[in-house]
Amino acid sequence: MGTLLTQLPALLGVLVGTLGTILATSLADRARWRRSQNVRWDERRLDAYVDYAHALKESYAVALRMTAHLRPGSHSHPIDRDEGLVRLAESDARRTVVWENLLLLGDEPTVVAAATWRDAVWQVERLARGIVGAPTGISEQLARVNEARDGYYRAARQSLGVRGGSVEQSAALRQALTDRTMVAADSAVRANDG
Rank of each mutant, 00 (worst) to 15 (best):
D179T: 11
R44K: 06
A93K: 15
D150F: 02
L27C: 00
A31W: 07
L46M: 14
S159C: 08
V39H: 06
V121T: 11
L85A: 14
G151V: 00
R154A: 11
W117I: 05
V97A: 13
T181V: 03
R45V: 11
V124T: 12
A113L: 06
N101M: 05
T110F: 09
L103V: 07
T3A: 13
N192T: 14
R154K: 12
L11F: 09
E100C: 13
G194T: 09
V16L: 15
R190N: 04
Q7G: 12
E108A: 10
S166D: 06
R44E: 07
P78M: 00
S187C: 12
R45D: 10
N38R: 13
A93C: 13
V86G: 11
A89W: 02
G73C: 08
E83I: 15
A172L: 10
T116C: 14
W122L: 15
L104M: 14
G17F: 04
N101T: 04
T136I: 12
M1D: 05
E168V: 06
T25A: 03
R40W: 07
Y49F: 05
V189Q: 00
I131M: 14
H54M: 11
V112S: 11
L177W: 08
G84M: 11
A68G: 12
Y60G: 10
S187R: 15
A172D: 06
S170K: 12
R118H: 06
L23T: 08
D47H: 12
Q175G: 03
D82N: 15
I131H: 12
N38H: 07
S36V: 02
Y49A: 01
A28G: 09
I138F: 01
G130W: 08
N38F: 05
R163V: 09
T3N: 04
V167A: 13
G137F: 09
D29I: 04
H69Q: 08
W122H: 10
T6Q: 08
R174C: 11
A93I: 09
W33A: 13
E140Q: 09
Q123G: 08
L105V: 04
N146I: 05
S36F: 04
R35Q: 04
G161I: 08
L105M: 04
D179L: 05
T25C: 01
